[in-house]
């Protein structure tokens, strides 16, 4: 009889976790970037010379999507998905799923709020473009927790792989 948790086999739980990490990070990044983009395009309409200073700010919430992608690929690398014939019991698969949750949720929330913080920073650049460097710092603080969630997910996956 097949080993299942809530009717789902281990391999599917692992896929579910990897997908959720990529979805959470990716959706958060998409929302965060679009939030700041709406403001930035308005500023550039008024002053096209600020494009170069505003671009890093707009790209900033994109890193959470990368963290989600990394977590998904770590699942594939650590558990032999690329080599084919990956075998996971339902318990192991469920553990992999749980290990992906920190990135899935924290990266989503972090990217959305980083986008909101970046809107304020974009306003700062619009008024005082000489402070473009300082403006990058505050949204960057929001990302700290996305990095921590990545560290935690990576450590959990590492323990499971061992």
């Amino acid at each position: 009889m097949e080993d299942l948790i809530l009717g789902i086999p281990g391999l599917a739980w692992a896929y579910f976790g990897a997908a959720l990490a990529a979805i959470g990070g990716g959706m958060g990044s998409a929302i965060g970037i679009s939030t700041v983009s709406n403001t930035v395009t308005g500023i550039i309409t008024e002053d096209a010379e600020k494009f170069g200073k505003l671009l890093p700010l707009t790209a900033m919430p994109g890193t959470q999507g990368v963290y989600g992608l990394i977590t998904a690929f770590l699942v594939f690398i650590f558990f032999g998905f690329f080599e084919g014939g990956a075998q996971l019991t339902a318990t192991q698969g469920f553990q992999v799923f749980l290990a992906c949750l920190p990135v899935a949720f924290v990266c989503f929330v972090s990217a959305v709020y980083q986008g909101a913080a970046a809107v304020g920073a974009a306003g700062m650049i619009a008024r005082r473009d000489e402070d473009a460097g300082k403006a990058l710092i505050f949204p960057a603080l929001v990302e700290t927790y996305a990095v921590f969630s990545l560290v935690l997910s990576v450590i959990m996956l590492l323990f499971l792989a061992e």
Binding site: T63, V66, Y67, L69, I70, F73, L74, I77, T144, V147, F148, L150, V151, V154
Partner: peptide, 19 residues
């Protein structure tokens, strides 16, 4: 603990390149 970001970002660079 905040410095663990260095390892996380280093790993991110490596893994995206690997992907």
């Amino acid at each position: 603990l905040s410095y663990t970001r260095l390892a996380a970002l280093g790993l991110a660079s490596l893994l995206v390149g690997d992907v």
